[in-house]
Design a protein around this nucleic acid. Structure first.
Lengths: 136, 136
DNA sequence: CTAAAACCTGTGAGCTACTCACAGGTCAAA
DNA sequence: TTTGACCTGTGAGTAGCTCACAGGTTTTAG
């Protein structure tokens, strides 16, 4: 019962404590019930939204303790939105620079490496680029 | 001589074969020359542009063999640009959905989990999301 | 009934591109 | 000469899976 999810992922989530299936005492097989399926689907959706596994586990644990996790979700969600917007801005900047470079390269010769340069196309790429894609 | 690059990164690149410094036979220290510095700077710039280490090594090896790597660079560069644009589009979609969700959530109650749902806010997030951020 | 196929188990490694920790050798300044 | 700053290689950790392996179980076909 993977519900479209790679079984290894399900087992991974189980190891990580996101799912807590019972065990068949006969053969030690894991028994996922409807609750686990809900948790799994929740986890997958949350991952798509950019939540980390620790965040998801936290939400799940709070839900287990009967505390409403939703205010926290709103919180992390807004943070995540801000992050997404930062990523977009960064990528747009990168795209602009790449486009500029590509048209500049139209006029540049290919140039076999001469011992001084490796590839002018890239070596002439300047301006500070603020990190390719991580946290600030 | 790190030129603003973390020494561990330099050593990592050396292990990976991007840099091939000579050795001081006395103390086994690595001796980076101007050529290595050029390769390092090239590699860092290429990384910022989204080239992978194998791609960079390939370019560097071609340059070593005195083949002009630039046509290949233009090639990979355009592929990378297309990828960046795909990523941007994906993130913009995500952002739009997140914004929509956030305003929809204004009207939703927080709702303590009741054994049937974990957090409506996320469980009611639907529509296929095409993968958060990887290759297609 | 049996043999092969299919699925389950836990453990451990591999992916990317670094980054950091550790133990020990080397070297320059005070 | 001692202290501190550097250098060395090795190995582990990061995130979130994914896959390989060896062995046990269960289902299915014949």
């Amino acid at each position: 019962m993977g519900a479209g999810v790679n079984p290894d992922t399900v087992r991974f989530y189980t190891r990580e404590g996101l799912l807590k299936p019972a065990r068949n005492p006969d053969n030690n097989y894991q028994l996922y019930d409807a609750e686990d399926l809900r948790r799994l689907r929740f986890a997958r959706k949350a991952r798509q939204l950019g939540f980390s596994l620790p965040e998801i586990r936290q939400i799940l644990e709070q839900a287990e303790d009967d505390h409403s996790p939703c205010p926290m979700v709103r919180d992390v969600f807004q943070q995540r939105l801000a992050e997404v917007e930062r990523e977009i801005a960064e990528l747009q900047q990168l795209r602009n620079r790449m486009n500029a470079a590509l048209s500049a390269w139209q006029d540049m010769p290919d140039g076999t490496p001469d011992g001084h340069t490796i590839c002018q196309l890239i070596e002439h790429w300047d301006e500070a680029v603020p990190e390719t894609g991580k946290k600030e």
